[in-house]
Design a binder for these strands. Structure first.
Lengths: 154, 154
DNA sequence: AATAGTGGTAGCAATTCGAAACTATATACT
DNA sequence: AGTATATAGTTTCGAATTGCTACCACTATT
């Protein structure tokens, strides 16, 4: 895995980790309870050498943790870390986008529902710390505390 | 662009379109108001042949629309469609994940804020049609109306 | 001892990427 | 008219990545 994007942008950095054709499918399976190498392999169809590479990167980046479960020979389990579980909104957003924009109403192969009520998830909202919901058109990017200093000729 | 994932899963299908190292950077720029080929090229650093391919796919998939702006020679503008703008939650989720999990508190290079109040976006919530917020642990995947029929030996 | 399952490596062909050079069209400048 | 500049690509080609298939080491089962 060669690092690609070096800009100071969280999206670019995120893409260095999950920006490929397979990684989010692995994560999807992990959210579904899959934790074993061979199960990821079977359920996603990813080649084993790629799965090896991807899992190693994801472990290195703290998305998964690999544990040796001392069962019958060499056996490991890959579980999402806190950081990995924090990818849930990304997965949900992607899922909903796919349903709405690639399949369309009545054609969704998989729905997301509230386990407790059975109601389908319908939208995502962006909230400030005060709990206020922010409209898409009011979202703005702003330099953060870790923004690279502007070249000033210091 | 060869189609890769064929499973009946909205995430897999989404990844066929935006699951690569560059596409979401192009989309990011588009949200920032960029619409020209050369500007996407300059701002993201993507190779021109790849940019050509990606934009063509994105136009084909209805994420962008290409319009001929009759200005000084060959000039086109690529604008997000409704479907493209619907990627905003994906972008926001990815942005926030990167900030929290790859940079950390106080190191964020770019923050998302509410333009009207200046307050930072802090979280995303998943809502049902009734407006109820669903906790991450209560989200469940369920076969939808477009789910492929189970093999029944019909 | 032979067979099967897990978690990988190794080798290799095919595909894709990345950088640079080149093309085509139109405008602006001298 | 000739030259320079800008946009929006296309082409070329070497390098890197991907996708198979085969193989390996370890353990348990038959």
């Amino acid at each position: 895995m060669t690092q690609r994007h070096t800009e100071a942008c969280p999206i670019a950095h995120s893409l260095n980790i999950i920006g490929d054709r397979w990684t989010l499918l692995i994560v999807r399976e992990a959210f579904g309870g899959i934790s074993r190498f061979s199960d990821f392999h079977k359920r996603t169809g990813i080649a084993k050498n790629l799965l090896t590479d991807r899992l190693a990167l994801l472990v290195q980046e703290g998305v998964f943790e690999k544990s040796d479960i001392g069962e019958r020979g060499v056996r490991y389990a890959y579980h999402l870390t806190e950081s990995g579980r924090a990818l849930l909104p990304v997965m949900v957003a992607l899922h909903m986008w796919g349903n709405e924009n690639l399949f369309g109403d009545g054609e969704e192969p998989v729905l997301l529902v509230d386990r407790t009520t059975g109601e389908p998830i319908q939208s995502m909202a962006m909230l400030t710390s005060s709990g206020a919901s922010v409209l898409p058109e009011n979202i703005r990017r702003r330099p953060g505390p870790g923004a690279p200093a502007l070249k000033t000729g210091d």
